[in-house]
Design a protein around this nucleic acid. Structure first.
Length: 115
DNA sequence: TACCTGACGGGCC
DNA sequence: GGGCCCGCCAGGT
């Protein structure tokens, strides 16, 4: 994942990594960004998520939260409660728009994918 | 072509 | 511990 990714390829890599995120786990924008080679490209990941609804297959963007474990992107879903609902449906406890035990449920793509 | 915005992160005060 | 500022890449106007 550290190849000279094209701008379009980076998006593909982002979606691929997010899809690799196991059910019941969550990851952060920065972690995914680092996984694709963008050390500080967390914003790009967020932007990619904004258009993920047009991407096929569907990307579990609800598993991606910010470094604080907050559901910062919940407002971009069909409804602000969709993101929290999906997480809770997968067994992830969400309280006050933030992931409970975020540090324990955090899934690091770089470590898991061993990049 | 240039400026601004955006689902963020890390460092500093 | 909390808040503020700067930096990052891409896309839209």
């Amino acid at each position: 994942m550290k190849d000279r990714n094209s701008k379009a390829d980076i998006y593909n890599a982002i979606y691929e990594i997010v899809r690799l995120c196991p059910k019941g786990r969550v990851t952060s924008y920065g972690a995914v960004a680092a996984a694709v080679g963008l050390k500080s490209g967390a914003r790009l990941v967020g932007y990619a998520m904004s258009v993920c609804k047009d991407i096929k297959p569907k990307v579990p963007a609800h598993r991606v939260v910010n470094s604080h474990g907050l559901l910062s992107g919940k407002h971009h879903f069909a409804t602000p409660e969709t993101m929290q609902l999906l997480l809770q449906k997968e067994g992830i406890q969400v309280h006050d728009d933030k992931v409970v035990d975020f540090g324990r449920l955090f899934w690091d793509p770089i470590k898991e994918l061993d990049v």
